[in-house]
Design a binder for these strands. Structure first.
Lengths: 154, 154
DNA sequence: AGTGAAACGACCGTAGA
DNA sequence: TCTACGGTCGTTTCACT
């Protein structure tokens, strides 16, 4: 689960990702026109970007629409090595998002659960059981109001 | 920006979205095989889902790789109508994610900025200036360790 | 809403620079 | 790493249900 910090992307790969942020299904031919490469070259680059995990092309929706009604952001305070705890938490399938932060918490995670039992099990049974997790604070989702991924094109 | 709470999706649309969570570029033909409809029908449904904003198909990456180095999660405490404040914050282009929550905050947002000046401007100049924003707490991102969107298929 | 068929365009492997 | 090209497969449109 360790995403090794990669070399900065070159301008063309950035442009390709920006195009895909606007429309993940845009054809390689169209992207090629914008960035000034051949279709095959664009395809190769996208392949590399996705294979290596640098980028992903995915369908995104509000989990609550698919029946996942117990979502939460959980702030975690860690005693000891933050990275070790982060890796452990990141390996849990219910954790959809994990960031290491500076401030009142060390780690913030988003968890996606179907119901209360699920959430309790994840929070008490799994997260708090992790060695090094000192304190947690849970923020239950009431509604997701915005999800945007096109900041690359601002 | 108001995402009106839609009727629950039927089983087939759920299945389609699950397929797209696994691979946003999966062909309609392949999806059609899985869900048991014709290609054309799948395409129509995907069109509707994306046009209506229920789902989006996008390229996703770690913003820090594109040179957006100042990201933060901001917890917001509101005095007054939370929804009004949420709408106002959601309209800001630097806000990539906004959820209404229960717990120590009323709203949590993720902001994507290029540099410190940008972030200061957004936080002090824009967010705190919003009528009804009582208190904010900022958690600066050090690293994004996990971003997953395939919870529909667990 | 969904199906089926035909024309069109996208995708993908390979060869060559 | 890129371009060029051809075979294959996916997409699109339309008439029909």
């Amino acid at each position: 689960m360790n995403t090794k910090q990669a070399p900065t992307l070159d301008g063309i790969s950035k442009q390709i990702i920006e195009q895909l942020q606007l429309d993940g299904r845009k054809s390689y031919a169209e992207i090629a026109k914008v960035v000034g490469l051949s279709e095959a070259a664009v395809r190769q680059r996208v392949q590399k970007l996705t294979d290596s995990g640098i980028a992903q092309i995915v369908g995104v929706t509000d989990p609550m629409r698919l029946g996942f009604n117990r979502l939460a952001m959980i702030g975690v305070r860690v005693s000891g090595d933050i990275r070790t705890v982060a890796e452990t938490l990141a390996d849990m399938p219910e954790v959809s998002y994990l960031v290491m932060v500076a401030g009142g918490f060390d780690i913030m995670i988003e968890v996606v659960c179907e119901d209360d039992n699920d959430l309790i099990e994840v929070l008490n049974g799994k997260i708090r059981a992790v060695e090094g997790v000192a304190e947690t604070e849970t923020f239950m989702y009431l509604a997701i109001k915005k999800q945007k991924y096109d900041w690359g094109t601002r």
